[in-house]
Design a protein around this nucleic acid. Structure first.
Lengths: 212, 212, 212, 212
DNA sequence: TATGAATGAGTATTCATTCAT
DNA sequence: TATGAATGAATACTCATTCAT
């Protein structure tokens, strides 16, 4: 009779899952449109066609639980595209290009998702532990990318550089392009994806390395 | 008498300007400490030692006007450091390194400023009515950096790349490092500044260029 | 089929009665634990192992109907103890002592009941529409005790006093001890029961009486 | 710009004190009419003629702060009457009578106050520390009365009895009469005050004492 | 200028109750 | 009977803004 918390989605009925998904979707669109700080339960409820905010509270025990699911949903969607594209690439260099370009592809395919993600991630207090229950860490994290770069370097496909710094730079380049796109709207996403891939293809080349 | 809007600071008395600066300073510190969504007029007033939030409303017609000035203040401070450092560098390549490293220096020297900037920029919607009056464009903009890169390429100091894409990547790398730093706290800022400069020094080298 | 109201328990099936009793029990425990204002249908349902608050609404037409039954249940339990103990006493004086001490015994044996009763009785307004349907009268009433004292006086076992005033005093002494006990927790209930009995044994003595 | 907490009433302006008193008064009346659990900020605001509940929050930082002041106000009013009447009495026995009768006088003179007090005291969870900040202890407490009875016994004016038990009984008799009065309304308060005083005059007589 | 009182819309969350299944 | 989804009003509390002084 109360909203469950955590990730035991199996325990939820089909109807519950559908409603939750509907609310999450409305939340994403709302955040994308009016920004995270201006996103209230009533706006979400209105967009979702719910009769009252009570319906949201019925399905999500607390506000952070809703936004945790929102972030999770977006991250899963982005991860799916990226993982698929990287798997089909043979070399580390090709995988890096696949990573970068698939991120741009996601931006193009799910503009609201990317926009919402940026809003939430930076809108949420970083040290605020009550917010998303560690999920904000997952969003900011470049751990996976760092490891990937280290592996590639170990395999001799990349040059000399600090994996973490490079990962932060790559991720930052992608995210900042997203911000530019949110602002401008009419950028050629695919082309810029290729260009960014070019840039980091260049500075990760074997043989090349920090010279000072 | 009503609060003025915009940039006609000349019309303001010395006392007015001092009060505004005091409020802006308190706003920056408050945002840095509690985050943009938790920043209220009363918290700012408290920190500024004002007896009433009415004082803020008296000096700033609307909430966005205050935060526009906040952003302006921060941007000016950051721009000062960067411009000075770049001026003393002789070559375009050296200037680029100066640009990157001075940005990291700003992060180290004014943590509250950088933190507040990140909070506000993403806390405020980009194209809505309550926004910062064109200022968010200035925040996101990489026009200056783009032009600089183009000049450098024309001068033959840089390789083949799209100036805008490169500018977005550089700016994104810096900003993402800032985010990581806000999250982690104990990163070696100067070292990472040098490493990021190394990375982009590498991929802007003359002779090098996009290969596909 | 709709939930019945009032006292026609005969019309209810065995299952219905069992469910009602189960809910009433859960309500008592809940009130005793978290207090009347914090007692909600969902908390009661949870404690009763019901899957939905709808189940409560199904068995009790309105919230006051549930709490009327709660009060009734408690009153009946208290009345049982008191009546039994009084019956075994021979004289009116002994019966009065039995009444007082058995009330303290009830407090000791059913702390949750007494606690819940106090919470509910003062939590529910006396003359409003959402009340307990005359039951609050039964709770407050000292009619039975008044009559008993009058009979005792007629039998010559008690002294000169106003029966109603004495009844109110006796009942008040007991109830206030209960309040103190709820506050303190570690009072010697049986001992205080005897002492209160002593006090009223003293001032109901024949020969003694109001002197002004 | 925020409501002050605690008891530093000196720090408040005249207007603030007046508003607070007005709100407290409205709160008392509201509690007396609809009961403590049904008393909400909006009902109080309505009765006080305030435009919104925000006005209450402006003057009282938190709900318990308001009700603490309510209880304080009532206790002060009751204490004034009682203290005055007791001071003019010469002997301990006379003082006890004064205590009892002045309590009844208070009931007669301030029916809303007494009613509200009963509602709040028993409506509030006893162990709930967040409620009135220890004030509920003051309300329930019979320490003063207990001490007074002990002194009187030491002075030889009273008989043998446990001071605490007697104090609880006296206070309980008074409070229960109040409850009866809230229910009935047309009791002769002064007369019952005298009768209750008679009762306890009787059982506190020197020479008399517990006999078992 | 500056104060502080006031406003009214806003927030998330809880609640008893209803109802289709 | 029983479930759980849904409703809509209610809760205390916060906020930017206004305004008389």
């Amino acid at each position: 009779m109360k909203a469950k918390d955590g990730d035991d989605q199996d325990a939820r009925t089909f109807t519950q899952q559908a409603r939750r998904a509907q609310i999450v979707q409305a939340a994403i669109e709302t955040v994308a449109e009016v920004g995270y700080p201006n996103t209230s339960f009533s706006k979400i409820a209105q967009r979702a066609g719910l009769s009252s905010t009570g319906m949201i509270s019925y399905h999500f025990a607390r506000k952070p639980e809703l936004f945790a699911e929102v972030v999770n949903t977006i991250l899963r969607a982005a991860g799916d595209i990226t993982a698929t594209r990287m798997r089909t690439a043979a070399t580390y260099r090709a995988k890096l290009r696949a990573y970068i370009e698939s991120n741009f592809e996601f931006i193009a395919r799910h503009p609201a998702y990317t926009q919402a993600l940026v809003e939430i991630v930076t809108g949420i207090r970083f040290r605020d532990t009550t917010s998303l229950g560690g999920l904000e860490k997952a969003v900011v994290s470049v751990d996976g990318l760092t490891d990937f770069l280290s592996e590639g370097r170990a395999a001799g496909e990349f040059g000399r550089f600090d994996s973490f710094t490079m990962a932060v730079s790559i991720r930052g380049a992608i995210d900042n392009f997203l911000r530019q796109h949110m602002f401008d709207g009419d950028l050629d996403i695919a082309r810029h994806g290729r260009e960014v891939a070019d840039i980091f293809d260049l500075c990760t080349r074997p043989g090349a390395g920090a010279s000072n």
